[in-house]
């Protein structure tokens, strides 16, 4: 065995990684070679000194470190959970965003018109006074009558439907309404009306 081999075995010995046969070989080399013997002693001492000296004595982390760490945790967590959810459900997030935007625009649309709107083919047959729309007795409306944000008073004839949005209607005993009477005053009903209205319009055109 040469000194280089012996040196490698010395380290293996310190790593507790030496077979019995190798240990015997190394020992016989150390007996004959004083340089290696000296080196072995030094390595052994280095090993012992390292294990003993590197150990922490009185120096420790400051006490408020735990508090500092724990105070940073919850914020981190909330944000993580929120972002994590979005990352995991891209389709749901997109759908939610879409609904949110739709609802928002619908509400703003619904709230924006508080003006009186009268829709009918025979505008000359009605009397508008303030926000009251009157169909006097004796006059006839050939088609539908729609009143938004106002009061409808019917004394005469309506041959189509009467629709009142965000308002009220009064039907006199002399009145005759051939079609349906619809009174809408809730956002959801209003949206439904818009949608069905759009479809019937599309269907008629």
């Amino acid at each position: 065995m040469d000194c280089k081999q012996a040196s490698s075995l010395m380290h293996d010995y310190l790593d507790e990684d030496l077979t019995h046969g190798q240990a015997v070989e190394l020992k016989s080399h150390l007996k004959d070679c004083s340089a290696c013997n000296e080196r072995f002693k030094e390595l052994e001492q280095t090993e012992m000194v390292l294990f003993a000296a590197i150990k922490p004595r009185s120096i420790t982390a400051s006490d408020e470190l735990v508090d500092r760490i724990m105070s940073q945790i919850p914020n981190q967590r909330k944000q993580q959970a929120w972002i994590g959810w979005i990352r995991k459900h891209p389709a749901l997030t997109a759908a939610a965003m879409f609904l949110f935007v739709m609802l928002f625009s619908a509400i703003s649309l619904w709230e924006s018109d508080d003006q009186l709107v009268v829709k009918t083919a025979d505008l000359d047959q009605v009397i508008i006074n303030g926000n009251t729309v009157t169909v006097p007795s004796g006059s006839t409306i050939a088609g539908n009558l729609t009143v938004e944000n106002g009061k409808a008073e019917i004394y005469g004839d309506v041959q189509g439907n009467l629709t009142v949005i965000d308002g009220s209607y009064y039907q006199a005993s002399t009145a005759h309404i051939a079609g349906e009477i619809k009174s809408i005053d809730q956002a959801l009903d209003w949206i439904w009306y818009r949608i069905t209205d759009m479809f019937t319009e599309v269907a008629y055109k």
Partner: peptide
């Protein structure tokens, strides 16, 4: 915390930096 602190302290030989490492380590763990 102490194990990580000693590890970092031996690596960096600086108390302040070692504490930073402890803090950063636990945030990463979390």
């Amino acid at each position: 915390k102490d194990k990580i602190f000693h590890l970092a302290y031996r690596m960096l030989s600086n108390r302040h930096e070692a504490e930073d490492i402890v803090q950063e380590t636990f945030l990463r763990v979390y």
